[in-house]
Simulated assay, not measured.
Amino acid sequence: MAYQNQNFKDEVITHSAMILGYAEKFEQARWVTHIITPDIVKASFGRSNDFREDDKVSTGSSKQEDYFLIAYFFYISVKIMLYRSN
């Protein structure tokens, strides 16, 4: 069973492998409870990094393109830091 801090009014979203408290103010999960079943423990595959919209978020999920500029600016920042360190 998931625990929700009563000070927050997060939307509780249940999936087959996790339960999360979605904080609309920040447009992301405030907390996540992963459900680890024996078949997951024994699995021989790794985590995939494919972004998926969550259609269970009542106010609408973020989309992958929402993160494009963040990733781009992070990439540029790293390039500048590496350039300056040489």
Rank of each mutant, 00 (worst) to 15 (best):
residue 42 K to M: 11
residue 72 Y to N: 03
residue 17 A to W: 03
residue 27 E to C: 04
residue 4 Q to S: 12
residue 22 Y to N: 00
residue 53 E to I: 07
residue 19 I to Y: 13
residue 10 D to F: 13
residue 24 E to N: 15
residue 71 A to W: 06
residue 10 D to K: 14
residue 73 F to N: 10
residue 73 F to L: 12
residue 19 I to E: 14
residue 1 M to T: 05
residue 57 V to E: 04
residue 50 D to K: 14
residue 48 S to K: 13
residue 44 S to T: 00
residue 16 S to M: 09
residue 3 Y to L: 12
residue 20 L to T: 08
residue 15 H to S: 10
residue 72 Y to V: 08
residue 67 Y to P: 01
residue 76 I to D: 07
residue 70 I to G: 13
residue 59 T to P: 00
residue 35 I to M: 04
residue 64 Q to E: 06
residue 21 G to F: 05
residue 13 I to Y: 05
residue 56 K to V: 00
residue 75 Y to V: 05
residue 50 D to M: 11
residue 72 Y to E: 08
residue 11 E to N: 03
residue 71 A to V: 02
residue 7 N to W: 14
residue 53 E to Q: 12
residue 7 N to Q: 15
residue 41 V to P: 01
residue 84 R to H: 06
residue 42 K to R: 11
residue 6 Q to S: 15
residue 53 E to G: 06
residue 43 A to T: 08
residue 76 I to P: 02
residue 62 S to D: 02
residue 68 F to C: 05
residue 73 F to H: 07
residue 54 D to V: 08
residue 42 K to H: 06
residue 33 T to W: 09
residue 10 D to G: 08
residue 62 S to F: 03
residue 61 S to T: 09
residue 17 A to P: 00
residue 12 V to I: 15
residue 84 R to T: 09
residue 20 L to E: 06
residue 3 Y to E: 13
residue 1 M to D: 10
residue 48 S to I: 09
residue 69 L to F: 13
residue 10 D to V: 13
residue 71 A to S: 03
residue 17 A to K: 09
residue 81 M to W: 05
residue 73 F to K: 04
